[in-house]
Computed example of a mutant assay.
Amino acid sequence: MDTRFLGIADLVETPSVAVVVDVMRAFTVAARAFAQGAEKIVLAESLDEALALKARHPDWVALKDGPPAPGFDAVNSPGLLRSVDLGGRTVVQKTTAGTVGTLAVKEAPMVLCTSFVVAEATAQLLRTRARGRVTFVVTGEDGQADEDLACAQYIARRATGAGTDPAEFLRRAAGSRAATELTEGVRQGAHPDDVALCLELDRFPFAMVAAWEDPLMVLRPCTVPSPADDAPIRQTGRRGPGCGAPNT
Rank of each mutant, 00 (worst) to 15 (best):
T3F: 11
T96S: 09
P221L: 07
R203T: 01
C198L: 09
I41E: 02
A210G: 14
G66S: 04
L51C: 10
F136V: 01
E168P: 08
S83L: 00
G161P: 00
F204Y: 15
T180Q: 12
A174L: 09
V17L: 12
L125I: 08
V12D: 13
F169M: 07
A211Y: 11
A162N: 03
Q144F: 11
D146L: 14
F34W: 05
R129G: 02
F204L: 10
P192R: 10
R238L: 13
M208C: 15
K64P: 02
T3P: 02
L199E: 08
A62E: 04
P15A: 06
D142C: 07
V61Q: 11
S46D: 06
A121H: 11
P246D: 11
Q153N: 03
A104T: 03
A74I: 00
A74P: 00
P109V: 14
D142P: 03
Q93H: 15
L80P: 00
A196I: 07
L63F: 05
E168S: 15
D59T: 13
V218A: 12
P70T: 10
T135C: 03
G237N: 05
Q235K: 06
F169V: 04
T28Y: 02
H57N: 14
G140E: 13
V12C: 11
R203W: 09
G98Q: 09
I8P: 00
R187S: 03
P227G: 05
R127I: 06
R32A: 05
H57G: 04
A18F: 07
S77T: 01
A159M: 02
R127C: 03
A174P: 10
P15T: 03
T14M: 02
V84F: 00
G98L: 03
R238C: 11
A97V: 08
A207C: 11
S176C: 07
R220K: 12
L197I: 07
D59R: 12
D193H: 08
L80S: 00
E147P: 06
T135S: 06
L47W: 15
V224I: 15
M208W: 15
S77K: 00
A119F: 00
V209N: 11
V91I: 12
E168N: 09
D229S: 11
T102R: 13
A33Y: 02
F34K: 04
G244R: 14
D165H: 00
R177Y: 08
A55M: 12
P232N: 03
V224M: 08
S115C: 02
D85T: 09
R131G: 14
A18E: 01
G189L: 10
A152F: 04
D229A: 11
A121D: 13
R4P: 01
R131Q: 12
R171Y: 09
A69P: 04
V12E: 11
A62D: 05
L86W: 00
G71K: 09
G7Y: 04
R187K: 14
A145R: 15
D202A: 08
S46I: 06
L103C: 10
A9E: 15
M110G: 11
I41M: 07
S77W: 00
Q93W: 04
Q188M: 13
G71R: 12
E45W: 10
A9C: 06
A152Y: 01
T114H: 06
F136Q: 01
R203C: 06
Y154K: 01
R239C: 10
L126H: 12
C198E: 06
W212I: 05
Q144D: 14
